[in-house]
Each structure stands twice: as C-alpha cells, then as structure tokens.
C-alpha cells in the first residue's frame, strides 16, 4: 500500500438534483472528496456519472443542492471559474482540439496562465514572446511526464486512441489543477495501455498531490487505485465507502448483477 496523506474535505457535493426536461439525471446526490485522495464514481451506463462531473465543473447547472469547493458554497459553478480555481477535467469521448497538434492542445490547456494582451501578441513584443517560451517549457515537462515527446508536432487526430487519451490528460494537467476530474480515462484501452494510464494517474496523485475524482468501468482498476468509491444507479446514490465496503454492499451487487430483476 502506498503511503497516503489524505487531507480535509476539498469538495463537498450536497443534495444535488439535476433533470433535463422530465428526465431526472441526478436525484439528491451527496458525497465529499478529501484533499489528495483518489475518489472513484462507479455505476452502470446511464447512472449519471458524467452528469455529476458536469455539475462539479459547471457544464450543467443542477436545479437543487449546492457544491462546496475549498470552503466556497455555490449551486451554479461557472466553467471558467471552476477552471481558474483549479478544477481540471478530461472527457469520456475524446474532446481534443482535432485541428491542432499535440503541443498546441497541451499549450491550450496552459492558456489560463497566459495573460499578455492581443496587441502585444500581434506585434510579438518581448513580454508576449517571453511568456510563450516560459509556458512552453512547462508544457514540455508535461509532455515528458506523459512520454509523448515523439508526437509533439503530430495533429492529434492522427494519433492512436490510447495516446489521444494521454493528450487529453496532458491538456488538463497543463493548468496544474488541484482537483482532476477524469471521465473514464481507460475506456477502450487494452491491458498495457490501462496499466500505463493507472501509473500516470497514481503518479499525478503522488507527485503533485492532485486530488483525483475518477469515473471508471473497470472494477479491477477502481478497486486497486481508489481510496473511496461512490456508486450511482439511475441517478441515485446507492453506495459510498472504501472499495472493500462497496464491494460487499448488497445493493451495489444487485445493481451490478441485476439480481431480482
């Protein structure tokens, strides 16, 4: 077991309900995330896992409930504010910038830190140039960390799927997030790719102390790397606790195995 250094609650989700038209995507969901932990959200397809992440970083706006992040209480997270206050995010279906190279994708993830004005950039003045070089250097660290140096200038669309997932992760990492929301980072990967991705996730958690909220279908992975697990089913929370507790919860087993249907 890795040495853990779990801190206080950094993100507290309280009684969140979200619906689209008549469809209730989330009903009265509450859970918390502690600093530096790896927190997994699991559940069958359509359970509302992605919707939950979308509420946390402000893509969707829940009708009820509140989200407390770093002591700040709000219902409606605004996406920009979420990003600025250190919530990073990857996507279930790759949402990379297809027309851009790997380097540019990750550089774009760094955009929040870049402040020079439009005129300075147009004229390529000293500060704009210096900023570009400084941030490029940081981004190169991210590229090294994810071991994708050889693809720096490749258009992301031309890369293999597993590596595109890494670029997605890199783009989120470039902003140095405090909390990283990972939406099925290992979906569609083979065993080796999954192992690589697990290693990256754990390294991020260890080396940078980043808090990780992770959606994953592979139970083996979830049980191995997460500290605590939330289980959703049809928009409701049916389980919460350490992997062992969740694994033995009769209701969770029922939802997964379909007993009684």
């Amino acid at each position: 077991m890795r040495p853990r250094n779990i801190g206080d609650v950094i993100l507290d989700v309280k009684n969140i309900s979200l619906s689209f038209g008549g469809v209730k995507a989330l009903q009265n969901i509450s859970f918390d995330v502690k600093e530096h932990e790896v927190r997994a959200i699991i559940g069958p397809n359509g359970a509302g896992k992605s919707s939950m992440l979308n509420c946390i970083n402000g893509v969707y706006h829940p009708q009820e409930g509140e989200i407390v992040y770093q002591g700040e209480v709000r219902r409606d997270m605004d996406t920009h504010h979420a990003a600025e206050s250190g919530i990073g995010r990857t996507f279930q279906n790759l949402a990379l910038f297809k027309g851009m190279s790997v380097l540019d994708n990750i550089m774009t993830g760094r955009n929040l830190k870049m402040k020079t004005g439009i005129l300075a950039q147009a004229l390529h003045l000293g500060p704009a140039r210096a900023e570009e070089l400084r941030e490029r250097e940081f981004v190169e660290h991210v590229i090294d960390f994810l071991e994708i140096q050889a693809y720096r200038k490749t258009p992301v669309g031309r890369m293999p799927y597993g590596l595109q997932k890494r670029v997605d992760l890199g783009r989120a990492l470039a902003a140095q997030p405090k909390v990283l929301l990972l939406d099925e980072p290992m979906a569609g990967m083979n065993m080796e790719e999954k192992q690589d991705m697990c290693r990256f996730v754990l390294d991020i958690n260890d080396e940078f102390g980043t808090t990780i909220v992770l959606i994953e279908h592979d139970m083996g992975v979830v049980m191995d790397i997460s500290d605590r697990v939330v289980v959703l089913d049809y928009g409701r929370k049916i389980g919460d606790g350490t992997p062992e507790v969740v694994r033995n919860d009769p209701e969770v087993i029922k939802a997964y195995l379909g007993v009684g249907h």
Binding site: H80, G88, A95, G99, T108, M114
Partner: peptide, 20 residues
Amino acid sequence: HIGRSWMAMRDMDVAAEVIG
C-alpha cells in the same frame, strides 16, 4: 495563446470552456 483559444473554440467549444 489568443490564436489557440480561437482554434479551441472552433474544434471543441465545450472542452475549451472547461479548460478555462
């Protein structure tokens, strides 16, 4: 970075918003 934010809007606007 201005140009990159333009292209990000073009390629995937939701993702662009999410990264700030």
